[in-house]
Amino acid sequence: MRLTAWATALRRIPIATTIGAQAALLALLLTGRPCVAGIIAAVGITQSILLALSHHRAVHAADRIADLESDLAVAYLDPVTGLAVRRVAEHHLIDAAGTDVTVALIDVDGMHAINTTHTHDGGDRFLAELAARLEQASDVGDLVARLGGDEFVLVTPRDPRTLARSLTGVLAPPITIDGVTRPMAVSIGICRTPGGNPHRALGRADRAMYAAKRRGGGIAHYDPVRDGEPPAPGVRPAVRHRDRRPHGHRTGTS
């Protein structure tokens, strides 16, 4: 039950109490006891005061709940792109239990160079434009989220080939930042997987994405023979994909 519903329910308790008490006293009055009228008046005044106080507390509580829910909604949105954050994507995949979903994990190629050339403000503009294009490729019921850094995910019930065509179309035009035209260069891993397990779904898409990155970008579909399964949660691979860099290459976001 939403918090506001609890506030509404609590607000009705004093009203029910007042009605019950006054009904009982009216019954006594009707039995021929005039002194009860004074008691009814006193109780009515008291209950009116209590109702006013209760209403004030309920309004204050409802306002506070609305503020908290607003803060929570903001916490679930990425401030740079306006997309959902990783936690939302994970819950979306959990809720997809019992169905198959297509997961596309998108990673920017050369993000470090973009930040170096155009500063981090230019990098943020690149990420915001990428987010807008991913939303263009999405359909009703899909989820687009920023996982963190320069990684994004799109979750859809559509088949992988259809999603790949949509992504190819929206990412084909270049982007212009500070008068410089750059390709929308990304590596994308796509997998079709049962919902319910975000670690497995994101892990498979991540492995396919690195297969695409190794061959210079573009889209790669998950191949269990080539890509294997992601390690169990909490297990760090012996060699991370991002550790596989040419000798002398500076460490940074790729």
Rank of each mutant, 00 (worst) to 15 (best):
A7F: 10
A9V: 03
I13C: 10
P14V: 06
A16T: 02
T17V: 13
G20S: 15
A21V: 03
A24L: 15
A24Q: 13
L25K: 10
A27F: 15
A37R: 14
I40G: 06
V43Y: 15
I49P: 00
I49F: 13
H55P: 02
H56M: 05
R57Q: 08
R57L: 07
L68M: 10
S70G: 05
A73M: 05
A73T: 04
Y76N: 05
P79A: 06
V80H: 11
T81G: 00
L83A: 04
A84D: 08
V85L: 08
R86W: 11
A89E: 01
A89Y: 08
A97G: 10
D100H: 15
H118Y: 15
H118D: 09
H120W: 13
R125D: 07
E129Y: 03
L130W: 07
A132V: 00
G148Y: 13
E151P: 04
L154I: 09
L154V: 05
V155N: 01
L163Q: 03
A164K: 02
S166V: 05
L167I: 01
V170G: 10
D178W: 12
V180P: 02
T181H: 03
R182E: 05
R182K: 10
M184G: 02
R192S: 00
N197W: 14
R200V: 05
A201M: 11
L202M: 12
M209S: 09
K213N: 09
I219F: 09
P224K: 12
V225Q: 15
D227K: 14
P237L: 14
D243S: 12
P246A: 04
T251P: 07
G252R: 13
